[in-house]
Nucleic acid binder design. Structure first.
Lengths: 112, 112
DNA sequence: CAACTATATGCGTATATGCTCATATAAAGT
DNA sequence: ACTTTATATGAGCATATACGCATATAGTTG
């Protein structure tokens, strides 16, 4: 995006949509729960504290966005992180947030 | 986020909020327009094709999120990208999308 | 086939937020 | 002081979407 020619309107829409998928705390919780390997829906319900219906919906959203992969095994459905850029993305955002926050703390202390 | 202990609920909220700021095409257009240096509001209105009111609002959102910085010079207000992780973030997402899309194209062609 | 378990989905509601129009503020020139 | 230009903001409307409840589907076991 930086050194390339400007993205088309369609491409911008896709990028925005992808960020939107990551803009829900429950979906981030699910992603976080899957960092240490695949889990089935019941396990994810337990790990996140959400309702089964809501977890199921969010898993669908994440799968449609090709962020998670799905594997059926009998009655169980296992989900896993299928997009390798997701951990890096989260790290980048977390790092940036930490810097911003610690700078704010420093300014607050300097002002007091 | 990956190798660290799970984020607190508050931290997840912050991360989600940050992704949400990036989940709007108009804001991405503004960021894109600022990749080659700072611009004032009127220039950004022209570059993005949005209304002045709407552009101003989005600039406020991006500034509040510490993604953009602001500099007043007489009547003009210049904005610039102040978070160095933003270009990397956009590149990551774009790269991931390209891979996903080209894989989909390949599958479509293999099926036909 | 009936009962049970795991997962998905239809529907209604509440909330958030992007957009537009009009107007307010701020800075500069006459 | 008045006008003009640049930017910000208040209010209202329209849309999107997250959540809860109930129910549907799929697969397994008796």
């Amino acid at each position: 995006m930086s050194k390339h020619r400007p993205l088309s309107e369609d491409a911008l829409q896709l990028v925005a949509q992808r960020f939107a998928v990551l803009a829900e705390p429950m979906r981030l919780r699910l992603i976080q729960a899957l960092f240490d390997g695949e889990k089935n829906v019941t396990e994810l319900v337990a790990a996140t504290g959400g309702t089964q219906a809501n977890v199921s919906r969010h898993l669908q959203t994440l799968t449609a966005a090709h962020i998670l992969g799905r594997r059926k095994e009998g009655l169980l459905v296992f989900y896993r992180i299928s997009d390798p850029t997701i951990p890096k993305l989260c790290e980048l955002v977390c790092g940036s947030l930490e810097k911003t926050l610690s700078r704010q703390v420093a300014q607050f202390e300097a002002a007091g």
